[in-house]
């Protein structure tokens, strides 16, 4: 069955690639991929910028999201409500709108350009992306914490462990593994989302593709290679996620309660 599955998978992927290649090569008017190849240095530096921004944003998102997710399960109503507010506002508005507000309103008002110079857009963009991702990370963390059986809390607290000790030593060790697959998924989203930073002039990879498209009017030659570059980053991440998920899935245990 495993072998059959593999054959099917290879066949489908090959068919899809053939279709895409056929479409890419038989573009009406013809696409001049040499133009993209001429700009390969720009594409490469753009991809590096994309990866750097994604890394920074992921780090910030994990930090913010971790804090907000923990706040959701804290006993402080203030921390909980602050986290809810953050998550709801961020998840309730489009990232593009958040980016515009952050860059054209907040950063301008704070005169960040004076401090950051030409890196302003990239840094503001990465921070914006981190804030955006943090809201989703917070939900991942909260869901993972809530997925742990209430009995674990009760057993730990009945032994005299504090709320914080229970969280650190009993609950989180059990749900970190459950967070890995959705967090990897969030990292994939983040890489794709970072393409929106091109609208505020960050020279990441989509920015260079757009420049090529508007200079040459050859959209295929600009965007098909771009898609391939994103896939080159996201597919390994997805693959890694699946590997981790398989590795981390605990062996099914005996039924605990009968009733």
């Amino acid at each position: 069955m495993k072998a059959r599955e593999r054959i099917v998978r290879v066949a489908v992927v090959a068919a899809a690639l053939a279709l895409i290649a056929e479409a890419a090569l038989s573009v009406p008017g013809g696409a001049d991929y040499a133009k993209a190849w001429d700009r390969r240095a720009l594409f490469a530096s753009g991809l590096v910028t994309t990866l750097l921004i994604s890394h920074g944003a992921l780090a910030l998102g994990l930090l913010l999201g971790g804090a907000a997710g923990l706040a959701r399960s804290s006993r402080s109503a203030w921390a909980d409500q602050a986290a809810v507010t953050y998550v709801e506002i961020v998840r309730g508005t489009p990232f593009l709108v958040q980016l515009y507000i952050l860059y054209f309103c907040v950063a301008r008002a704070a005169r960040l350009q004076d401090a950051l110079g030409s890196a302003e857009a990239a840094i503001v963009g990465a921070v914006g992306l981190g804030i955006f991702a943090g809201a989703y990370v917070a939900e991942i963390v909260r869901a993972a914490i809530e997925s742990v059986d209430r009995g674990q809390w009760e057993a730990a607290r009945s032994l005299g462990l504090s709320h914080g000790q229970t969280l650190r030593r009993v609950i989180l060790p059990q749900c970190l593994r459950r967070m890995v697959p959705p967090l990897t998924g969030e990292a994939v989203s983040l890489v794709k989302e970072s393409s929106l930073l091109s609208v505020i002039g960050v020279a990441e990879v989509t920015f260079h593709a757009k420049n090529l498209a508007s200079a040459s009017y050859d959209t295929f030659a600009a965007y098909l290679p771009l898609a391939a570059l994103y896939l080159a980053v996201t597919l390994p991440l997805s693959w890694l996620s699946r590997r981790l998920e398989a590795r981390l899935t605990p062996t099914p245990s005996l039924p605990v309660t009968r009733l």
Binding site: G151, E154, A155, R157, L159, G160, S253, T257
Partner: peptide, 27 residues
Amino acid sequence: VRARIGMVFQAFHLFPHLTALGNVTLA
């Protein structure tokens, strides 16, 4: 107060990420 009161549950609620000894020594 709770540290002076032991509780044993119907569904055990052992900590699955710890060994038997780890369960006993955690608190």
